[in-house]
Design a protein around this nucleic acid. Structure first.
Lengths: 107, 107
DNA sequence: ATCATTGTTCGATAGTTATTGAACTATGGA
DNA sequence: TCCATAGTTCAATAACTATCGAACAATGAT
């Protein structure tokens, strides 16, 4: 993952609503959730949610698929994984003080 | 780390200049770097850098100490560690598909 | 005391992001 | 075909963010 993509992904997650949405989609698992279910769950207007989902999608953190009348959104686990890898390896230079899991693994 | 702090930290890192600055300070190690050395390295104006350092500091990702005429900035490894922990555990719900290091550890 | 160095703050400006409701598109059902 | 449902897009607005250079503080040297 390039730094520019990392910056986009970080920006996409750097918002209360969007980190909630992403977490919800992760918890929903591979089946994903229809946009309407997300907006019900988080109690927000369809158009605002649509805006935020577009941001997440543009950053590559979620994908969308039309199923019937619904747009089903899914978390893109791979993108999150690459983001965490970048933060750990490139940004933190592999420093174990930064990376809780590296510390855990070395115990 | 609270979600609101996580959002702040993500926002602080979600900028080309600031992720560079943070990486530079991580690589500089515990001694840190004077602001002037950072602006030399990244070739930017003092006032713009000062703005970005303030953002990082406000988000808790770096600390500053006056030493002589310099302000020495240091990466806050603990904050980064907490950020990665939040993303892995809370946001990703501990899903191994999200967390490269969890996968690595389980092999 | 005076001056140079090192950074920060301020005001102006430009650009970006978030929110709202109304209009619109696409799909499926009667 | 006509209607209801599910979402997206659009325009307007407000709020926030980034950049610049000039002015300002704080420190250290002469």
């Amino acid at each position: 993952m390039e730094q520019s993509e990392v910056v986009e992904a970080l920006g996409a997650l750097a918002h209360h609503t969007r980190i909630e949405v992403f977490g919800l989609l992760v918890r929903a698992g591979p089946e994903g959730l229809a946009a309407g279910l997300v907006s019900d769950e988080l109690d927000m207007s369809a158009s605002t949610l649509s805006f935020h989902l577009k941001e997440l999608k543009h950053a590559g953190l979620v994908s969308a698929e039309r199923i019937g009348r619904s747009q089903v959104y899914r978390a893109n686990y791979g993108a999150m994984s690459e983001l965490l890898t970048f933060l750990t390896d490139d940004c933190c230079n592999g420093a174990p003080e930064c990376a809780p899991l590296l510390r855990k693994a070395s115990r």
